[in-house]
């Protein structure tokens, strides 16, 4: 009794119990794997039993999509290099780019009152606490506990989650906070006179040093002005398919990695 109370207290205040959590999670992983097995089997068998024609069709479709994306990428590459040149002219810092790794969500339920997921990559794959997660459409959340073989991630729609962001159209800065619903985000601290409209795209500003800059977060869905209040009440729909996508991307910021390795080397050289 007293032991568990003490455990709760230390877990809340300090980070000492991370080791205990890690080892318990290793004991738990087989169970999670077992629970995830039926959905994996279903996926696998649907792949095995899908007909030749279907596969051909899908292949064709994917090839077309690939061509389309390739074409768009060419344009983007030109814009990217132009952007880099302009930034050099301005002596502004230059975004290096990111490393990514595909992770799969385990079909495992957690506390129904928090928006969390378990993914199948952990600290053995260099995932770390606070690492941003994106899906094909935008930012989806961040890792809050990295275990050896799996990680827990908090989705951006959780009540306790916030991201520093800006509007794509005019660079207006705001903070995007979760509401606990999978299809709604709240925009905080936007003054009444600010220029914000329904349909504005919201991107990450990179100010919090956790999320890389310029990734899509959502689209403004409602703006209400109240004369008596200091701030606008604005909501947005997340771009990422929260609650629908099975695969997510772990993002490593190359610039940050370089800075980290430099710091560790400096620490080593100092003795």
């Amino acid at each position: 009794m007293a032991l568990s109370a003490a455990a709760m207290l230390t877990d809340h205040r300090h980070q000492h119990l991370q080791e205990v959590r890690n080892s318990l999670s290793q004991a738990l992983y087989p169970l999670q794997y077992l629970v995830n097995l039926p959905s994996r089997l279903a996926n696998w068998s649907s792949e095995i039993f899908s007909s030749h024609g279907q596969l051909l069709q899908e292949n064709q479709r994917l090839k077309q999509q690939q061509l389309l994306l390739q074409a768009r990428l060419q344009k983007l590459e030109i814009i990217d290099s132009e952007n880099a040149r302009l930034r050099e002219l301005l002596h502004a810092s230059f975004k290096v780019g990111e490393n990514v790794l595909v992770a799969e969500m385990l079909a495992v339920d957690m506390d129904p009152y928090r928006q969390q997921v378990v993914i199948n990559k952990g600290s053995n794959d260099d995932a770390y606490e606070g690492q941003p997660l994106i899906d094909a459409h935008g930012i989806i959340g961040q890792i809050i506990h990295a275990y050896p073989y799996s990680s827990e991630a908090l989705l951006l729609t959780d009540l306790s989650h916030s991201i520093p962001a800006q509007l794509n159209r005019n660079g207006l800065r705001t903070i995007v906070s979760g509401t606990g619903k999978t299809n709604q985000l709240e925009l905080l601290y936007i003054s009444n006179s600010a220029d914000i409209r329904i349909g504005d795209r919201i991107i990450s500003s990179g100010l919090g040093r956790i999320f890389p800059a310029n990734y899509p977060i959502g689209v403004v869905s409602s703006v209400k002005h109240y004369p008596g209040r200091d701030f606008v009440e604005a909501y947005a729909t997340p771009s990422a398919h929260v609650g629908r996508s099975r695969e997510v991307l772990l993002v490593w910021d190359k610039a940050k990695l370089a800075a980290d390795t430099q710091a560790t080397e400096a620490a080593k050289a100092r003795p």
Binding site: L3, S4, A7, M8, H12, L28, M110, H145, E152
Partner: peptide
């Protein structure tokens, strides 16, 4: 208590949260 701690880890709650309640009612 051990299994309740496992539950805590799986649910992402505070370590010991379920253990606390479970130990009390088991007692």
């Amino acid at each position: 208590c051990l299994f309740a701690l496992l539950l805590d880890v799986s649910q992402g709650t505070l370590l010991g949260q379920h253990a606390f309640g479970l130990c009390l009612i088991l007692y």
